[in-house]
């Protein structure tokens, strides 16, 4: 088993929480794991990415080799397109359709979505609205994690267990919200794969 995943978004959007959940789930299944994060200056509202590698065999490089990623998981649609050279031809893009517009020249969102729909394999979903229906916009990143879940090669219960552990300090309400968001995202992906 090997999954190379690019996580993409804008600083502050919660991609590291997604990475932490996948990472913990992978560890609980005794997989090898490497997760390269971006800290420091670029975190301030800039484009951020994390390379997450899971494997049943030891992993060498902290960075995913170009053109070999299995998945791009993005919490922002334009950011999902930034890393297409990293993706292999059979790879999937899982992304939110909700733009994070903090630059003066953000392109027309319709054009961005059309470009994503031109890629060979994708799941695009309105994570913000799904999260709101679950109870809070804050869970949009968990909706995206849910949509990516069927592609991770991990057992559903290990991802759920990871969410319970990671958000334990935030109270039961937050855990239930995140689990609901996860399941809604997963249901959407299973319907649209």
């Amino acid at each position: 088993m090997k999954k190379d995943i690019i996580l993409a978004g804008v600083g502050g959007q919660g991609i590291l929480s997604i990475a932490a959940c996948i990472g913990m789930a992978a560890l609980s299944e005794n997989l090898f794991l490497k997760q390269a994060e971006v800290h420091g200056m670029s975190q301030r509202g800039g484009a951020v990415q994390s390379h997450l590698r899971l494997s049943s065999d030891p992993i060498a490089s902290d960075l995913i080799p170009e053109g070999q990623a299995d998945l791009i998981i993005a919490v922002e649609p334009m950011e999902s397109l930034r890393y297409t050279p990293m993706l292999q031809s059979s790879g999937w893009i899982i992304t939110s359709i909700n733009p994070y517009n903090n630059i003066p020249d953000y392109p027309d969102i319709e054009l961005i979505l059309k470009e994503i729909w031109n890629q060979p394999h994708y799941i695009t979903l309105d994570a913000d609205n799904i999260a709101k229906d679950c109870g809070s916009l804050k869970a949009a990143n968990m909706v995206i994690l849910g949509a990516a879940a069927p592609f991770l090669g991990l057992r559903p219960d290990s991802v759920e267990k990871a969410i319970k552990t990671i958000f334990a300090g935030k109270g039961d309400d937050v855990i239930q919200l995140n689990l609901k968001a996860l399941n809604q995202g997963r249901a959407y992906a299973l319907k649209h794969m």
């Binding site: 484009a47 170009e66 334009m78 397109l81 031809s89 392109p107 961005i112």
Partner: peptide, 14 residues
């Protein structure tokens, strides 16, 4: 080495 699709010209610096 392999390389996926080129980055779309739509993608702007952030």
């Amino acid at each position: 080495h392999q390389r996926g699709n080129e980055v779309s010209s739509l993608v702007k610096n952030r």
